[in-house]
Design a protein around this nucleic acid. Sequence first.
DNA 1: TCCGCCGATAAGCGGCGCTTATCGATCGCA
DNA 2: TGCGATCGATAAGCGCCGCTTATCGGCGGA
Lengths: 290, 290
Amino acid sequence: MRCFVCVARVLSFSRAAAELGMSQPAVSQAVGRLERASGVRLFERTSREVRLSTAGKGLLARAEALLEAAASFSAEAARLAISPRPVIRLAYAPLVGGLAARAARRLGEGEPSVDVELRAMGWRAATQALTRGEVGVAILGAPFPVGFTTGVRFHVTVGHLAVPAGDPLAGLARLTPAQLGRHRVLLPRNRPPGGMWARVAATLRGEHQHRVVGEDIDDFTAVLDLVAAGAGLLPVPHLLAASIRRDDVRFVPFDAGDLRLTFGLAWPPGRVPSEVTTLVHTVQRTLWTR
Amino acid sequence: MRCFVCVARVLSFSRAAAELGMSQPAVSQAVGRLERASGVRLFERTSREVRLSTAGKGLLARAEALLEAAASFSAEAARLAISPRPVIRLAYAPLVGGLAARAARRLGEGEPSVDVELRAMGWRAATQALTRGEVGVAILGAPFPVGFTTGVRFHVTVGHLAVPAGDPLAGLARLTPAQLGRHRVLLPRNRPPGGMWARVAATLRGEHQHRVVGEDIDDFTAVLDLVAAGAGLLPVPHLLAASIRRDDVRFVPFDAGDLRLTFGLAWPPGRVPSEVTTLVHTVQRTLWTR
DNA sequence: TCCGCCGATAAGCGGCGCTTATCGATCGCA
DNA sequence: TGCGATCGATAAGCGCCGCTTATCGGCGGA
């Protein structure tokens, strides 16, 4: 299966063999076995190029899912072998990373017997991870995915704009939408209706050009690199602007009306491990004592 | 892996071996190998009983996911080996089964080159299948999962109540909520806010006892069996009442205010296979010509 | 025309995983 | 308390799977 996926990726039996650290005939045989076992031809091999067949295209995704499941099993086994302690996997929106990190540290102090695994991911990836059970709890922006229990709502105000350090706007004390001029504003492509980015887009609608930066924002650092490179400006919450220091990006206060965003915790319904309940309370306390 | 899951299920190496059609030492060795490879003890074996260890509990779900992924690969391979034609996998809420079946037949007549695979499933299972890519398009009741394209909205009126044939209520020409008396009403446990069952529950709130019949309603036949057995009454749409004939259940018109439910098609955003577009149009036409 | 590259095939071999046979431990029962 | 039954682990044997090296056939470029 690994051979199939690797050949499909590099479209060459020889190179795949090199990447896999085995000989070329072994790869040929492995793919041949898989083809005989499944009864379909996975690749069209002309003697000058290798192409995925239509059947191969259809099976590639499943093969990758299979490998991913196997990797997940191995990873969890390795974790259990090293430290059999319970683990809370927490997905969090990148812009509340500070909160997530503080809550995790605090939980670690209060309950040294559990591990917390933090995973920054965008809204869509987080909801998927929740439904698949890859994470046990998530800090999400509204709208919350239906079918999950939600709690510990709180608000975050988007009151800053990330601006390249060299830009004339970076010197101003405050910014208003009217001052943006021809600057572009970076927004993710995937904007759940009613969510943060949809509201930012609505606030700026018509006045400025938007620029799509990808399916979702999973990693603020990468997007701030884009900002520094002059790709556009990025609206960020106070929370984040206060916690990030970069020489190449300035955070300028931004008056864009009342951009208060609702965040909250979401976790699967039904019986919930006590560690998740503890985490929920910890987040709650962390919010109170900020 | 199969051995691990099977032993975990029956909690006996011997019985697992029998179920798997292999000898008991083979199962012992397979589990032992897996334990050595992953570095954790999966079972606590006392010489009188076999229990899953905590590590085993944590890994069981992943092992099952892995087997499921493997089965999915095999199934798709088998399908491709028999008929390499494109397939549309359509999830549909059981209560619009008639529509889904008609649309599928119609699509089959118009486009004999594609197969349609129909899968009845409840709201939650359908959204999961959509996010996992197990189905390409779904006929869902509102609320629609965010992050998907939706279209072809239509309305369905819940205007009948399924009543056991022997019940006094079965003889009446019409029913009102007030007439239900001490009868219970069956509802699924998992009711997405704003969805069909939530509205049915709101309509009946306080007046009658509800009885939860499970996580979701994936199979109306099974629930109608419960109705026939006297477990409770089930609100059903006109659509369904008109298409099902059962001797042990009567569908009595029910005045419960305006229980119009919104349904629609949902499919993943971005590039969509043309077959899905065709299906969407076919459902649209099927709705028009009903 | 010949060389180089790529994938398929052949032959050989080591090891994995299945089998049967057996052991050790524990519990029920008399 | 001793015996048999049951269950899982272990031992020995063996067949086959899958990897290796060596080689072939097809195609394109110099």
